[in-house]
Nucleic acid binder design. Structure first.
Length: 865
RNA sequence: GCCCUGGUGGCGGAAUGGUAGACGCUGAGGACUUAAAAUCCUUUGUCCGUAAGGACGUGCGGGUUCAAGUCCCGCCCUGGGCACCA
């Protein structure tokens, strides 16, 4: 094989193809074995969903950033792991299958080919031997295994619950996939529907996920989003006894200091007690209202036109402290899914209650006044007053401030047996099943209750491994079915081929169509599963079972992929403990901010769970996270087909090469910033690379002969300043200023002023950004393959030191002149020098110096009278 | 409404409280060329001035400081997230 590419000019296509082939052939970027004495560095990208559209211009941004870091750390002597894979389950592939009838696996494989080739052509330093694919049964075997761990520990359960159902997609969607009444993908309207679902008990981890947030090196905005999403709120639950009825109502409030201002209670239309407590006289109105609410789309109910609606239930409750009766209403501004689905309404101190009370003519009792006033005028003018303040009209609690009052009143209610401290979260348990084909099958069988009990009575039933303490069951047509897990030897449970990928109109999974997959015989002793068992073999241990046909949501595979990269071929566990011990957590994780609460919260949950059950060593999966910004279209808008402002990376590579594309995307601006693409701008990066090329080679492609023996002194200083700056900037992910520093150096460097050795140092600095060109010129200068194995250049302090330095002379804080002084120049010397200068002298003619500010090595500022 | 970002030339952006506008793009002028491409040189915040030089200038209004794009207070606007969560 050739040492380098044999083109004369900068033929980037030839050069890039040449080096990509060479890297692949030599496995240049394979991580060293874990026996390596080097320190490790694990760089992780959020792996892509291989869509049919191929790579968009945003992908190379994050990938180039992580690649620069990977290559830089490698040069610094680290054992670097930089893997890539595919998050390949998901709806688009399924919809493609519905349209074409082709199995999603075929289309997915095809898309992956395309993605891999596109990524390869960007020249990333990836260890391709570790490529993973969430749809590979050898991968999802472990996704299923983790699910069974959740099941075993009581964190996976089934529940008949209202879910978001999208008739257009014929699919159930998670809360997070619904945006103000429409599906996130496709923007179709959604409605509520009751379906049996698998749910993961993420709420059990709410506090853990909250508590470890502060120690993470993450963008502050993402932490804030997670805090808001979890939505922890501390307050009081208060019991209200109903008038003339045995039942009582619990309400939840964070403002129990306002309890003397309660003038009515409000229940959510979904409140379970409603059918019991509404008297006949009001039943009709209440039922009508409930029906009305159900018909409302979520957009109508929570949308911007929030006109309050509601009806009186005809029932009253006893105020626990004033002992007066307050009316109970229902209104859809109280949510059925939060708190106790019931609130105490305090119109004087809550905007929503105020609006409602005004509309329906309910009492407004003011019991809090602003801290720094006592006049009645204030109270009248600032209602509703929703801040903390001082209590009034609150019997023995008058005069207390809100904070103290909350504690005292809660305490008082507790002694009366009418209240308790309570914590609620906005976070709901994670709806974990989808009625789809293209996802991980949930590895559960359903058997009749009596068969389940027969199993348990055996000494050695097969599914002990994942047996939960409490059975998971559901009821259908009078039969109780019990969930029993597969064993780990039975994993992976692979997707069966099916004839049509369309879900049924009732919303059941297309897997239902695979009869041999769904209806099976199970041997309760061995766990053997067969579609058909011949009569003569059918002993008493064979029972009928049906498989769970729901599949997991797309987020499942990405919850633990950071672990699988460490030992992608290991088959005794999800990760080899030795690999895990060596590589530990990613040292750097980069991806888009759009995953701030979905992927990043789910992955933290799974990882924390794996930590709790002893399978990983660190409680948090991603100690250091970074979001690259979005690259906008040239018009400053988000790139989109409809706007026609999409830039295709393939076209850019064709015209300028991958090195230029990489360099330009990094030069555009700060990595985290949102920045518009500019077609003219890329010329600058291209010109810079051509300049570097000409710094080494003549027009005919031979090496320049007139390199200086030694660097020009000023250029040597600039080189070492550049080494220092580029190194520092890479460490701080400030790639745009690192590039501009290299430009400054190259603008100054001419063959006559620079030594070959210094050119090579420059190439080392450039290598992480434009690896193909750096590699090519490196080898043409007679160095051996590969430049990534050359050590990172070190800035020589000898060149960074200067004995004379430029300082600024200011008059009244304005720069007027500058001069060169000795490094150790004193204030007196500087003052003498400054005042002797003609220009400064003219300022001193009419005024005298009142004060001198001396900042050593920087400036002298003369303040005049 | 609440939480989080950001606001600097014609454009993308740069500036540990210390010469605002580095670097790149664009524009203008020039060199090379029969011509073009490529390359190179000069210039490019606004205003006054022939020039030297001066005044103004980092969303708006105040403040702290010898000195503010940077720190503090108030406001306006862009982008992102949440949104009747009691």
């Amino acid at each position: 094989m050739e040492e380098h590419c044999s083109c004369e000019g900068y033929d980037f296509q030839k050069i890039e193809a040449f080096w990509q082939a060479k890297w692949q052939q030599h496995k240049t970027f394979a991580a060293d074995p874990i026996t390596s004495k080097k320190r490790k560095y694990y760089v992780l990208d959020m792996f892509p969903y291989p869509s049919g559209a191929g790579l968009h211009i945003g992908h190379p941004e994050g990938y180039t950033a992580s690649d620069i870091l990977a290559r830089y750390k490698r040069s610094c002597g680290f054992n670097v792991l930089h893997p890539m894979g595919w998050d390949a389950f998901g709806l688009p592939a399924e919809q493609h299958a519905i349209l074409t009838g082709q199995a999603p696996s075929i289309n997915t494989a095809h898309n992956i080919e395309h993605f891999r080739e596109q990524i390869r052509r960007l020249g990333f330093a990836i260890d391709w031997d570790r490529e993973i694919n969430t749809t590979d049964p050898l991968y999802y075997r472990w996704t299923q295994w983790i699910f069974l761990q959740f099941f075993k520990h009581g964190l996976a359960y089934v529940d008949e619950r209202p879910v978001w159902w999208c008739p257009e997609l014929k699919s159930v969607l998670a809360n997070e996939e619904v945006i103000s009444g429409y599906s996130e993908r496709g923007h179709h309207p959604v409605e509520r529907k009751n379906l049996r679902q698998w749910v993961l008990r993420i709420t059990a981890y709410a506090d853990k996920l909250l508590e470890s947030l502060p120690i993470l090196d993450w963008p502050e905005s993402t932490k804030q989003q997670q805090i808001a999403w979890i939505g922890r709120s501390e307050g009081t639950e208060i019991q209200f006894i109903l008038k003339d009825q045995p039942d009582s109502l619990w309400v939840y409030t964070t403002r129990c200091d306002t309890i003397y201002g309660v003038s009515y209670l409000v229940l959510a239309p979904e409140h379970p007690l409603l059918p019991k407590i509404v008297p006949l006289t009001h039943r009709r109105a209440v039922e009508d209202y409930i029906a009305q609410t159900k018909r409302k789309s979520d957009l109508e109910r929570t949308g911007l036109a929030k006109e309050k609606t509601g009806v009186f239930t005809g029932t009253y409750a006893l105020h626990p402290l004033t002992h007066q009766y307050v009316p109970i209403w229902i209104a859809d501004y109280v949510l059925g899914t939060y708190g106790t689905a019931a609130v105490m309404a305090v119109p004087a101190h809550d905007e929503r209650d105020f609006e409602f009370a005004q509309k329906f003519g309910l009492d407004i009792l003011s019991v809090i006044r602003p801290k720094h006033s006592s006049g009645h005028d204030d109270i009248a003018t600032c209602i509703p007053f929703c801040d903390d303040g001082v209590l009034c009209h609150s019997q023995t609690f008058d005069g207390l401030d809100s904070y103290q009052a909350r504690q005292k009143i809660t305490e008082h209610l507790k002694t009366l047996g009418r209240g308790k401290i309570s914590v609620h979260y906005k976070l709901h348990d994670w709806l974990f099943s989808r009625q789809r084909y293209w996802g991980e099958p949930i590895p559960i069988l359903w058997v009749r209750e009596e068969d389940y009990h027969r199993c348990l009575s055996l000494a050695d039933f097969y599914f002990k491994e994942f047996l939960p303490q409490e059975a998971v069951t559901y009821n259908s047509k009078g039969i109780t079915w019990v969930a029993i897990p597969l064993s780990s030897e039975q994993l992976p449970l692979t997707l069966p081929p099916i004839s049509s990928y369309l879900p049924s109109d009732s919303g059941e999974s297309p897997l239902k169509r695979a009869k041999d997959f769904c209806d099976v015989w199970l041997h309760i002793r061995t766990g053997e599963v067969q579609a058909h068992v011949k009569g003569e073999h059918r002993d008493a241990h064979w029972v009928h079972a049906h498989r769970e046909t729901n599949t997991m949501p797309q987020w499942a595979g990405s919850c633990w992929y950071h672990l699988r990269y460490l030992s992608p071929h290991y088959d005794a566990a999800l990760v080899d403990p030795q690999d895990l011990h060596y590589w530990a957590s990613p040292d750097f994780y980069i991806g888009g901010a759009e995953h701030a609460v979905l992927h990043l919260l789910y992955a933290r949950f799974w990882h924390r769970f794996l930590f709790d059950i002893g399978f990983v060593e660190n409680p948090e999966p991603y100690p250091r996270l970074f979001h690259q910004g979005i690259i906008l279209g040239e018009d400053g808008n988000k790139m989109s087909k409809s706007r026609g402002n999409v830039v295709n990376p393939d076209d850019i590579i064709q015209m300028y090469g991958a090195d230029t594309l990489r360099l330009y995307e990094m030069f555009l601006g700060p990595l985290e910033a949102m920045k518009p693409w500019n077609t003219h701008g890329i010329e600058g990066s291209f010109r810079f690379l051509k300049k570097v090329w000409r710094l080494v080679l003549q027009e005919n492609g031979s090496i320049l002969q007139n390199f200086s023996e030694k660097d020009d002194e000023a250029l040597a200083v600039l080189l070492h300043e550049s080494i220092r700056k580029v190194t520092e900037d890479i460490e701080n992910l400030r790639f745009n200023t690192a590039i501009s520093q290299m430009m400054i150096f190259v603008n100054e460097a001419t063959p006559a002023r620079i030594s070959q050795h210094s050119v090579k140092q420059l190439l080392s600095l450039l290598a992480p950004f434009a690896p193909h060109m750096a590699e090519e010129l490196w080898c043409r200068l007679g160095e051996s393959f590969s430049i990534v194995q050359a050590p990172w250049p070190q800035a020589d302090p000898q060149y960074l030191y200067r004995d004379r330095i430029k300082i600024v002379i200011m008059i009244d804080g304005k720069a007027r002149d500058e001069m060169e002084v000795a490094l150790d120049c004193s204030q007196e010397e500087a003052l003498a020098l400054a005042t002797s200068r003609k220009k400064i002298h003219s300022f001193l003619r009419e005024k005298s110096i009142q004060r001198v500010i001396w900042v050593a090595q920087k400036l002298i500022n003369l303040v005049l009278k």
